[in-house]
Design a protein around this nucleic acid. Sequence first.
DNA 1: ATTGTAAAAGAGCGATCGCTTGGATATCCA
DNA 2: TGGATATCCAAGCGATCGCTCTTTTACAAT
Lengths: 200, 200
Amino acid sequence: MGRAKTYDRDVVTERAMLLFWERGYHATSTRDLTDAMGVNPYSLYAEFGSKEALYAAAIDRYEATVFQGHFGALEASGASIEEIRAVLDFFGDMGIHDVDRRGCLLCNATTELAPSAEQSQLLSARFVRRLNGAFGNALGNARAAGRLSDGASGDGLAALFPSVLLGIFVMARGGVDGAVLRAAADQALAQLEAVVRVGA
Amino acid sequence: MGRAKTYDRDVVTERAMLLFWERGYHATSTRDLTDAMGVNPYSLYAEFGSKEALYAAAIDRYEATVFQGHFGALEASGASIEEIRAVLDFFGDMGIHDVDRRGCLLCNATTELAPSAEQSQLLSARFVRRLNGAFGNALGNARAAGRLSDGASGDGLAALFPSVLLGIFVMARGGVDGAVLRAAADQALAQLEAVVRVGA
DNA sequence: ATTGTAAAAGAGCGATCGCTTGGATATCCA
DNA sequence: TGGATATCCAAGCGATCGCTCTTTTACAAT
């Protein structure tokens, strides 16, 4: 039935994702993409249809792999305080981990393409809603387990933490001193401990 | 002495700033700029030198006018709790104010151009440092006036608030539901009230 | 081995990019 | 008012943009 493809869709999508992540949408040319993906222009358009569709595929892959890897634990049925601590602590060290200053692809995509594509609004809203829901789930579990102090609902923190993380993503991409990111994360962690019942 | 200019540098820089703010750097063509500025290509390059230099001029104007207008009060010698409340409350309504979803130009510039221009790192670092210093100034004044509770230094909040605001900027540009922005700002305000001595 | 078929390869499409140039025009000084 | 001079204006520069075509090549089914 004809010649077989010499590339793997997942592999080349991953490479495109990394390039978009590093440079952004407009600053990445199709020539850059074909070079990095090891695929010819014809194959790129036969496989994905357009640069914009390739970008969407890269975004989808990012959410299914990177985002899921970072926040999936918060969405689990057993997620609680420990998972929140781990996530906030991890991104407190983003200045160390993210040495090449890629930040977060979803955050970068939101700020670069917000006004033009109406679907990007859906993307951003879904992205933030998922972050919000992830923290809300973990905090809700903690509350149900009686691990939060009486007055605290956790809803406020479920709104605060995503915003803090977005700020950390921006600062990481901007090359801000890692100590500033660490301080922001530590303060968020302190707010968390303030509502956790002692000894729970 | 030759013909006089038919445009005002401040006026055309303002127009360029608004266009960059709305669309970003790469998505704004020089044709778009000359149209919006009401200036010919020759005049644009005679006045600014390059698209990149015009962008820098727009950034400078943004910091001197918009950013200064929003955060200048926090940097004043008399700034205290009231100024912090006002700023956080204002951006809690950013979903209402920023109907055309421009977000923050400095935040957008940080995420779009971070990896390419090394000077953008300086820009982002300066931008965040100024935000940090502004909140630190107001919190320091409040502490010196004995308005913070004994244990609280305010340093943690001076790191937290800029991060929360950056998150709000991203969400506003992404078209996220205004209630989410409001909730993040309210929680930040709650953290502030938690360290303010009652009746002070 | 032969043949049908789909992918690889690379030249190149029209359009637009940032930017420049030459002649027309308007303003300032003497 | 008469040059001198700097700005305006439109046309268009080479380069690159996203994308497509034709030819060549290699795999799969017979």
